[in-house]
Structure formats: C-alpha cells, structure tokens
Design a protein around this nucleic acid. Sequence first.
DNA 1: TCCTAAGTTAGAATAATTCCAGATTGCAAA
DNA 2: TTTGCAATCTGGAATTATTCTAACTTAGGA
Lengths: 141, 141
Amino acid sequence: MQQPVDQIVSTLREKGLRVTPQRFAVYSNLLGRADHPTAEQILGDLNQDAPTSSQATVYSSLQALRDVGLVREVLLEEGICRYDANVEPHHHFRCQSCGAIEDIAWEQFQSISLSKLRPGLKVEDYEVTVRGQCEACVTRN
Amino acid sequence: MQQPVDQIVSTLREKGLRVTPQRFAVYSNLLGRADHPTAEQILGDLNQDAPTSSQATVYSSLQALRDVGLVREVLLEEGICRYDANVEPHHHFRCQSCGAIEDIAWEQFQSISLSKLRPGLKVEDYEVTVRGQCEACVTRN
DNA sequence: TCCTAAGTTAGAATAATTCCAGATTGCAAA
DNA sequence: TTTGCAATCTGGAATTATTCTAACTTAGGA
C-alpha cells in the first residue's frame, strides 16, 4: 500500500490539486493504513508529534481528495464518516462486535445482475455491505 | 403500509416497549410513509399542528424501536441518518441527482453467494446500495 | 523572482445528537 | 380501581462532528 513520495505527488498534480504539506500528509496517511479512519483519527495521527494541520484543513483536504476521486467515504455506522484511499471498486465487511472493517474484493459479488431493476433507473455504481462477526470475535465467543 | 392502531399497539407491546403517545406517533409516522425520513423530519411532522414530542423523545423513540428491531437506519449520505420501518430485508437505490431513495426488492440480489468470503467470518446480514439516477432525473436531462 | 489563486488557520458558528435532572405516566399487581 | 414505581418525557444545556469566516500564507506558473 505504501507508495513513494514522488508518485503521491504526481497523482495529486494529475488531479489538478496543489501539493501542500497538509494535503500530502492527509493523502499519504490514508494510503498508508489498511483501516478506514475518521477525519478525527487522521487529524490525531498527523499532529501526534507536532502540530502540522488544523482540523479545518483535514476536512477540506478530504473533501478535495474525494472530489477528484482519490478518496471515498465509507458510511457504515450512524454518525460516523470514514475515509478510504482504496478507490478500486470493492465492498465492505463490518464486525458487529468489535466494529472492525475489512475490505471485500470486488469479484466476490461480480455475479450481481442489475438487469432486473426497475427500468428507467440508470445505475452508476453499487456497493455491498456485509455485517457479521470477524474471525477474532467468533473465536473469542 | 397503513396499519390499524390496535396492531401497532400490540406490535410495540410484543417487543416489550411501553406504548406512549410519543413512541406510538413516531412508529406510526414511519409506518405511514414510503420515504426514509430523518429524525428531524419526523419531529417536524409530529409537531406540525401542535407540539406533541420533544426532539430528545423522537431520538430516544427511534433508538428504542431500532433496538427491538422494528426500525432500521439507512446510511446513504454523509452525516445523514435516515430511518425505515420496513424491516423486511431489502436494498436501497439512491439518486445522485435529486437524492431520492427507493427500496429495491430483496429478491433482486438473492443470487449473491457469500460462500467465497474469507473463511472465519460469520455473516449475519448484508445489504446492497445502488447509486445512479432515478427515472425522473434521467428524463429531465 | 514575482504574483496570485488556491490553500491554511484559529476560532466562531452551525447542525445533529445526547445528556441531565426533575416531572409525568403506562401498566402490572393489589 | 387504585396504587407504586420504573420507564418515559421534557426543555435546556452539553457534546460532537463539521463548516464557515476573514485574514494570512504559499505553491507553482509566468
């Protein structure tokens, strides 16, 4: 998941975003983690050692990244908006016990047929959310 | 979708909830509409003519109803939590243009096979979210 | 190097939801 | 039918997540 600095910089440039230290840090942080953090968690991460970004900046960076399609939001819990730098189509699993979120490969549900949906609807995208218990929680109980 | 008063009352009782005018009103309102309102919309509805419920009560009623499985939340937009009294399994379609939300019958995606998911995961539930444009918006453009 | 539109900031504002502590009430049992 | 009380309701304050504002800073093209 780790990408070299140069590559991140050029990805941002390609999308027409100016590369600021804050914006770079937000995107880079998101690329470097497998979980799906909230804006708050990213902010905490970035400012862990020394203050580098204000909260308004983290929010606006995330919005900018989302607008150009480098980041997508993941809505699985009430009132909690998480972010994901993996924009390859994929689905999500959420553990009802511990809250852990895992990616599910797109191919899992490739069989889905949208053909029988009410005619007139123009489908652009779809996503499957699976809920249950993760391996750790299953064995624990 | 409209249910007789007695039936709503006994449904609530069966779930072990006390039947208060406020709780009844929230559930009844939700049963009577096809859309997926927010807590705020329900509150506005109930207090349209005369004040009947405080906002704290609407929130807590929704929580109580959700806890016993009479209502489920629908998370399709960032920061917006909607409620749905249709707890029969079904999926959702959301129009990216006008924001309209439609139910999709469960059978549409019954073909989904969860067998190939990472072993160890215990699946309890899943839901498909489809995004695109509704008929009205397609024809408008 | 300079210029300026884009980005950043702290702090205030807004919005959604929850908390609180006292008043009320549904309903089970007498 | 009354009664007792735990569950529920209430307004207002508190909390949390997010956005706005207006002044300051800066990335990067010319």
